[in-house]
Nucleic acid binder design. Structure first.
Lengths: 252, 252
DNA sequence: TGGGTTGTTCCGCATAGTGGAATCTGGTAT
DNA sequence: ATACCAGATTCCACTATGCGGAACAACCCA
């Protein structure tokens, strides 16, 4: 349980087959709103009998539930999800820092971690402004748009980054932005993910220099021009350092 | 590559073999605080190499994460848990009703659903009283203590109920209480689960009469004497009817 | 009544998964 | 340094586990 051998997000040979991979594919299909067996099986790329059997097994564990409208994610996931956020030090450790960050910049702030090929918000504080961005904890955003995405991309290894860039339509623009991130230590974006929304992000690293999360502030583009971004950047970077310290301080 | 003709295994779900069952057992072990491989494997009842391999697979899907302190539940579960509570009609449908229920009784109110052999809180409203009970959404409580547990037990089929009762130390007392529940339509408990805490619960059923959830109010025993319980009971039962109506009304 | 949909069961086959044993890693006492 | 230990990781021969095509059942609508 000492130093972890840097098993990155890269796929392992033999992944994509196996009960576990199929089950995760089914849960993803349900997360995307599939309801009928055929629909779920189709989106997960599985034969109907296989999907049927696995969904039945998942149901006995409460990870899937069935209702009149078909299959859906089950209450067992609510339980596990709540337990997961309870013992992820990051969420608790980051909250006071996010509150200060929003206090200093006046904008909404968030912390993201990478999950598969997306990034999930694990903590957020809303701006007191009447016009503000809202990102709820638990939501999952793409790895190919927004300043936080650029920070993740800048840190990913070559093959991983290329794969993600290929899946976006704008690899050229992103590629140049990414090199800037590594140099400056923070990223900026304007209207990439959502029209009219801009943001500034910085990496949070562990003792070995591995990326574990990204902190962001985001707001309407009218308050996120390049000059604003530069002003916010030092606070965002400082917040990243604070979170690193807060995590390092705990025993577990 | 040679394969001896093997008799079809034909096992039933939930019997605890199979990749999925083992994986769920591992997640449960992590939920209970296991950190090192040996500890996780031990609690899940699996050999170390098996646990190691499965945890690795779970990690690539973000359902498990590794840190300096060992294994833990991963951020992917936060994402799935949040998606699950987002599309469980119950939680949203119940909130206004719980607010009214707490308004009328002055006590904290909750909705539970059954997950495996436990019950999980999916929605809660806190009493405005200075002295009040707090049950956070997502937490998981036993099926063998508290008034909500009695409602679940009263509805379970014979074999299921016996198994759960056997696992508690007080099957005789519970058994008599349970018969009362079926007659009255609500359950009362005092100091069973937590010293000094009492509660009143009623079943929420779907159109076919199947139990889908339980509504409760809970508070300090000083405000939960038998007379209080009877007074609260009608509000709790009315709340159950309201929630049934709210769920039936949606199209999905 | 017949064609389209969906959910469900069956079962022979082979592959994905198992776990005992061996090995590696790092920490700590001698 | 040396021996020791506990936890993590890899190996691999063997087989129970899971696979999915095919057939069946239960609907719905025209």
């Amino acid at each position: 349980m000492r130093s972890v051998p840097t098993r990155g997000a890269g796929r392992q040979p033999g992944s994509g087959v196996g009960v576990l991979d199929r089950s995760v594919a089914l849960l993803a299909a349900l997360e995307n709103g599939a309801r009928t067996l055929a629909e779920v099986a189709g989106r997960a790329g599985l034969p109907r009998p296989t999907a049927h059997r696995l969904l039945g097994a998942l149901e006995t564990h409460g990870l899937v539930r069935r209702s009149r409208e078909g299959y859906a994610l089950g209450p067992g996931l609510i339980r596990l999800g709540s337990a997961a956020s309870r013992d992820l030090p990051l969420a608790d450790a980051a909250r006071p820092t996010l509150e200060r960050l929003t206090g200093r910049t006046g904008e909404s702030s968030q912390v993201y971690v990478r999950v598969g090929d997306e990034r999930v918000c694990v903590a957020a504080v809303e701006s007191p402004n009447e016009l503000r961005t809202i990102v709820e904890p638990g939501v999952s955003l793409p790895m190919t748009a927004g300043s936080a995405a650029k920070v993740f991309l800048a840190d990913a290894d070559e093959a991983d980054r290329e794969r993600l860039l290929r899946s976006s339509g704008r690899s050229a623009a992103l590629r140049t932005d990414i090199t800037g991130v590594a140099r400056r230590g923070w990223a900026h974006s304007a209207g990439e993910r959502q029209a009219g929304v801009g943001s500034v992000s910085a990496p949070v690293r562990d003792g070995d220099g591995h990326l574990i999360a990204v902190v962001s502030v985001s707001g309407p583009m009218s308050r996120m021009r390049p000059a604003d971004a530069r002003r916010h950047a030092r606070h965002v970077v400082a917040a990243a350092r604070e979170i690193e310290a807060a995590i390092g301080a705990r025993s577990g």
